[in-house]
């Protein structure tokens, strides 16, 4: 579905990704793990066009998307959940959600249908639909971000540290929501430092070190050797 081939990318003259290649298979949750500075978040930003690639290609359903402007990727069915809080705090929850349907904003009926679907799926948003998003708790904001992402009917989600800053209970709920999206035919490529919790929801794992893939395997295999994987990072 999504294939990164021999990509170099970075900030200014500093290269973060070095000849990196990987695949996110259709309807799988692919997990990217690795020590700090390995290039995990940079990879997601490069896929979404926030960081320019200097070499290689990024193919989505066989088409090279590396030169497309970021905002056009949404039309291709790709959405991105940033690591930091990205709700629009001064807009209401309803306005935040509606913006998720920007790609088909002229189809009023479809926008309304999607809104209702999200309110049915996430009751907490329905109750607070006219409140400003900035007033929500951390977990609720994450829920809003996920719902807003789903408004555009994406087929591929790029997810950066979904549990960052959340309590273990809320983080678990977020993982369950994300894992459940596979049932809707969505493919996920997720970066997470919280390996112990996220590995159980994943299908395939890439370990990144110094901007390249150092190993890859089925999630069940990494889960069985989790201690060794984490210890190997401590050498860095």
């Amino acid at each position: 579905m999504l294939e990164v081939k021999n990509v170099d990318a970075g900030y200014g003259k500093i290269n973060i990704l070095n000849d990196l290649s990987l695949k996110a298979r259709e309807n799988n949750l692919t997990l990217l793990i690795g020590p700090n500075g390995a290039g995990k978040s940079t990879l997601l930003k490069a896929i979404f066009g926030f960081v320019k690639t200097s070499k290689g290609s990024i193919e989505y359903n066989g088409k090279d998307i590396s030169s497309l402007p970021s905002h056009q990727l949404v039309d291709h069915g790709i959405s991105f959940l940033l690591q930091r809080v990205s709700v629009f705090p001064e807009l209401t929850i309803n306005e935040n959600l509606k913006l998720g349907a920007w790609a088909f904003k002229k189809d009023k009926q479809k926008v309304t249908q999607q809104l209702e679907a999200m309110y049915d799926k996430f009751d907490v948003l329905k109750q607070k639909r006219n409140e400003k998003a900035g007033l929500m708790s951390g977990g609720q904001k994450r829920t809003l971000e996920i719902a807003r992402m789903l408004m555009s009917n994406p087929k591929m989600l790029l997810i950066d540290e979904p549990s960052a800053g959340l309590s273990p209970k809320i983080a678990k709920e977020v993982y369950q929501i994300l894992h459940g999206l596979k049932d809707d035919g969505i493919t996920l490529l997720m970066v997470d430092q919280n390996i112990r919790d996220s590995i159980g929801y994943s299908d395939y794992v890439y370990v990144l070190e110094q901007g390249s893939v150092s190993s890859e395997s089925k999630a069940s295999e990494v889960e069985a050797n989790l201690k060794e994987v984490v210890q190997s990072w401590l050498k860095f």
Partner: peptide, 11 residues
């Protein structure tokens, strides 16, 4: 409020 988040919406 947030340029990157707007871009993610397809704006």
């Amino acid at each position: 409020q947030d340029r990157d988040a707007s871009t993610i919406m397809g704006i």
